[in-house]
């Protein structure tokens, strides 16, 4: 494939990727996520065709760090924008315009503002890419035929085999107990 799969560590031959459990609907996956969370799993994920309100809480996910990235890139853009204009107007190409001082900061506010917004937006998009490890062209879960329903009407929980709590039989039982209508073992390819 060429692209790395950073989420998946090197697994010994024959070891599976993990378990994939399908649930009936959004309510079922919400309750199941709470159970998996409470059982202490850390290497797992949920997959749904549409955003389920509050699922991040049910999964016990921490607040995203993306806002800090956006704040940093936004402030960088704004500062850079002001400094760039200062350098151009005062040092590189000093021109007196309508009798105003060379460093006429009000004139520089619109560009400073726009660059702050631009860098903030770019930070949001590419920060999101980085946190989600995108672009990722292949994922072991794609080897499951039933997983195709995740973009249609399927609600899934996957538990990865390198989770410290992972045990194929025990984890599978937990998922069934949590209301899974089907549980399968996904091979690591």
């Amino acid at each position: 494939m060429g692209l790395p799969l950073p989420m998946v560590p090197q697994l010994p031959d024959g070891k599976s990727f993990g378990l994939l459990a399908r649930f009936k609907d959004a309510q079922a996956i919400y309750r199941a996520c709470e159970k998996v969370r409470d059982a202490g799993y850390t290497r797992w994920d949920s997959h749904s065709p549409f955003p389920v309100h509050g699922l991040d809480k049910a999964m016990g996910l921490k607040a995203s760090k993306l806002p800090w990235v956006v704040l940093t890139t936004g402030l960088t853009g704004a500062t850079g924008g002001m400094l760039l204009q200062y350098w151009v107007a005062v040092h590189a190409y000093p021109l007196i315009i309508s009798g105003k001082p060379l460093f006429s900061w009000p004139a520089f506010v619109p560009v400073t503002f726009e660059l702050g917004v631009l860098f903030g937006a770019l930070g949001a998009v590419f920060g999101m890419f980085a946190f989600n490890q995108l672009p990722m062209l292949f994922h072991p879960l794609f080897s499951s035929r039933s997983f195709e329903a995740a973009t249609d009407d399927g609600f899934f929980i996957s538990i990865e085999s390198w989770d410290p709590e992972y045990d194929e039989a025990r984890s599978s039982a937990l998922l069934r107990e949590a209301g899974a209508i089907a549980v399968e073992v996904v091979e690591n390819r």
Binding site: S98, G99, P106, A107, V109, P110
Partner: peptide, 12 residues
């Protein structure tokens, strides 16, 4: 507030 100030300041 800035927009109002800005245009007036610029045109002078």
């Amino acid at each position: 507030g800035f927009s109002q100030f800005f245009l007036i300041w610029y045109a002078n």
